[in-house]
Nucleic acid binder design. Structure first.
Lengths: 131, 131
DNA sequence: ATTTGTGCAAAAGCTTTGCAAGGAA
DNA sequence: TTCCTTGCAAAGCTTTTGCACAAAT
């Protein structure tokens, strides 16, 4: 395997992501990093996000809207997706232990992980509707 | 709203999907329907799959591989995704009742649905490795 | 000096859409 | 006739990639 060299672009992507709880898309990352490094390219953002994800430093999250999101929290957890605004939030709940064993019953294959997505309308959207 | 008119293309898409347990992609549907209607276009396939999904006759399934899949089974259920070949299978397990209530605890928003994806290696792939 | 990372632009996938022609009601 | 659906092609979006140059070791 190849050695990893320092890059301030990668570093700033990591730092930017670390503070975010909203699971930004590659484009959001790009738009924000550009404030600091106006010449950074979208390709570089994608390359680094992929790299960081494969290193296990961040996590790629698919929420079914055709765009990948990135999460600095690598501890297993569930997500909520708002049907109206599409925002993604963490669910304050421990992942169910033993769910994989349960799912394995009568299933032809070896299960070793799971994710869950919850759907609904976020509070911000509900407040808007009330008015 | 607009009235729905019969189309043999849509009908054949529905029939094709009805027999499948493997959650085909739009392209797979297209390739297969073409055997019957060689002039059908990919756009028509996409339009009808979207329409059928919005009518609730089929279900769009996102499995995190950047491609949408389509499922004739509209009853809520969980899916398994093979890490090696990417195949998608149904999990023989009832969706957990009360999971949404559990997830709602301490969460800012109204939850009214959920999906779950299980990961692992399917039997077909495991058998290949053994040899 | 060597090897990795970047910026730019082009290309690649998947999906959607505009439009004129065809088909159902 | 009226309105829906189709085929075709173009466009849209997100993501990946080739390449020459820049930066790190």
């Amino acid at each position: 395997m190849k050695a990893l060299k320092y890059s301030r672009q990668r570093e700033s992507i990591k730092e930017f992501l670390a503070d975010r709880r909203d699971h930004p898309t590659a484009d959001t990352v790009y738009m924000n990093i550009r404030k600091l490094y106006p010449n950074i390219s979208l390709g570089t953002v994608y390359r680094n996000l992929s790299l960081l994800a494969s290193l296990g430093e961040i996590r790629k999250v698919s929420c079914g809207d055709g765009v990948e999101r990135f999460d600095p929290n690598i501890v297993p957890h569930y997500h909520f997706v708002c049907r109206e605004c599409g925002c993604v939030q963490d669910i304050p709940m421990e992942p169910l232990d033993g769910l994989e064993t349960m799912a394995s019953k009568g299933f032809a294959g070896a299960i070793d992980g799971h994710t869950a997505l919850f759907y609904g309308v976020c509070n911000a959207c509900r407040n808007k509707e009330d008015q």
